[in-house]
Amino acid sequence: MTISVAMTVNGKPVSGKVEARTLLVQFLREHLGMTGTHVGCDTSQCGACVVHVDGKSVKSCTMLAVQADGAKVTTIEGLAASADKLHPMQEAFRDNHALQCGFCTPGMVMSAIDMVKRHNYQLDEATVRHELEGNLCRCTGYHNIVKAILAAAPAMKAAGV
């Protein structure tokens, strides 16, 4: 059985027909061609698939596309203001060497932005480490990821994002 879904993805209205069991991550990647959102574990353990749905971070491998019908979805591709101007969190990840292979990076960045906002731009290392428990990275050891998130919080506040 196919169902019509419509949502706003990265500021643009999109729609499509999906099977009722289609996951949001599948809709984004396979129907819309937005491959920045990664599929890592298929069990909601790794966080590589995190996107924002109506401003909150969500593991898109655990949400059906039909559940996002009518929602505002932001993926890693929708963060940068332009090709030349990255989101402050993306800049902080780059500047603090918070990535290696890059596979977990989209989910880490999306989770981190929500984390910073939920904590009103006031974070400490212990809070960041605790909040990252749902995101796995096999390359960096998290040290530079934590540094990046702490560096991005005041930059995000200053930029009003």
Rank of each mutant, 00 (worst) to 15 (best):
T2Y: 04
K12Q: 15
P13N: 13
P13R: 11
S15H: 13
S15F: 10
S15E: 15
V18T: 02
E19D: 14
R21Y: 13
V25I: 13
R29N: 01
E30I: 09
H31I: 10
G33V: 13
G33T: 12
G33K: 10
M34P: 00
V39I: 15
C41Q: 11
D42K: 02
T43N: 12
S44N: 15
C46H: 09
A48C: 12
C49Y: 11
V53N: 01
K59F: 07
T62V: 05
T75K: 02
I76F: 00
E77P: 00
L79T: 12
A80H: 03
S82W: 08
D84M: 12
K85S: 12
H87K: 01
H87F: 00
P88S: 07
M89G: 03
Q90G: 03
Q90A: 06
E91M: 13
A92D: 11
D95M: 10
F103I: 09
C104L: 01
G107H: 01
M108A: 11
V109W: 03
S111D: 00
S111E: 00
I113K: 04
H119F: 11
Y121W: 07
A126S: 12
T127K: 09
V128F: 06
E131A: 14
E133K: 13
N135F: 00
T140H: 10
G141D: 00
Y142I: 08
A151H: 07
P154N: 08
K157C: 06
G160Q: 07
